[in-house]
């Protein structure tokens, strides 16, 4: 595989993790809480693609989006509303439990061996053929990921609710004092969380068509690592962190020899520990910033 191909593939994987990281960063921004069960929304979205495999593709994708957004909102109401004000670690554990339970549900309903989703397998064809191994899905990922970010930035910076979201993330109490409707802000954050899950479900199933019960959990764990790595306090830094982890993981995978590939997680996580030591508050946060906010 060529260096260019490796680089482009690393970028596309980075984009996927960045989209996952956005959902974590959005929820953290407004609530100061972590949603580890976001991965299960992605998993359910992916399973919904399998369930609707005979439907027209547009309808199938639409339903996937609706399911993910619905599930995200349901989580907000059933889990996050009662836990409002609890610490980030409490919600981390609660959503860990939820994620664990939901994985058991997927295992029971969809079986341990996974279900194949091949809606967009045409995107797995290589672009040029021959020497450079770049597949269409890479461009789809970069393109759709890019569109999602444009949409998100438009909402955040060009609408009233976006301004309210930014205000809430900056200072929860003051935002409330000046009349920001927190419920509305939280709802929008979770809608975007659901939408990002649907996008990841659609794109990730092109690269890994087999949807197993731990499909979403594996994604969210790496993305969460990326979020903390980048700096969870800011949406931009969190997203960049997600991108960096996906990028480094993919690039390391291409660089290390085949028989050592099993140690890829070790290398990736060593990188994570190293970054956290040098920059405890995040890769893109100056060391002077307070570490204790979380």
């Amino acid at each position: 595989m060529s260096a260019l191909g490796d680089l482009v593939n690393a970028i596309s994987l980075g984009v996927i993790y960045a989209v996952v990281a956005v959902s974590v960063g959005l929820v953290f921004g407004v609530l100061r809480q972590v949603n580890l069960a976001q991965g299960e929304i992605i998993a359910f979205g992916a399973y919904s693609l399998w369930l609707t495999r005979t439907w027209p593709i547009v309808l199938s994708f639409l339903l996937c989006c609706l399911i993910c957004i619905g599930m995200s909102l349901a989580m907000q109401i059933a889990i996050f509303r009662p836990l409002r004000g609890a610490s980030a670690l409490t919600t981390l554990i609660v959503t860990f439990g939820l994620s664990y339970a939901l994985e058991a549900v997927w295992l029971m309903v969809f079986g341990p061996n996974g279900q194949p989703v091949s809606r967009l397998s045409i995107l797995n064809n290589t672009v040029l053929g021959g020497h450079v191994d770049i597949r269409w899905v890479t461009f789809a990922e970069i393109g759709i990921g890019g569109l999602f970010f444009v949409l998100l930035l438009t909402v955040l910076y060009r609408t009233k609710v976006g301004a309210m979201m930014r205000a809430t993330a900056e200072d929860y109490k003051t935002a409330r004092l000046i009349g920001v409707r927190i419920e509305q802000v939280v709802t929008v954050a979770f809608v975007f969380g659901g939408l990002s899950a649907a996008i990841v479900a659609i794109l990730a199933t092109v690269q890994t068509p087999l949807v197993t019960p731990d499909f979403g959990f594996n994604l969210i764990v790496v993305a969460l690592v990326g979020v903390v790595l980048g700096g969870i306090d800011s949406l931009g830094k969190a997203t960049a962190g997600g991108f960096v982890v996906g990028f480094v993981n993919s690039l390391l995978g291409a660089v290390i020899p085949e028989q050592q590939l099993v140690f890829l997680p070790t290398l990736t996580f060593l990188f994570v520990i190293l970054v956290l030591l040098l920059r405890p508050a995040g890769l893109f946060v100056p060391n002077r910033a307070s570490v204790e906010r979380v």
């Binding site: 980030a88 994570v272 956290l276």
Partner: peptide
């Protein structure tokens, strides 16, 4: 040397 979520993630690593 780490605190909060960073410590949690590092121990997970």
């Amino acid at each position: 040397r780490l605190s909060g979520l960073a410590a949690g993630i590092a121990t997970f690593a």
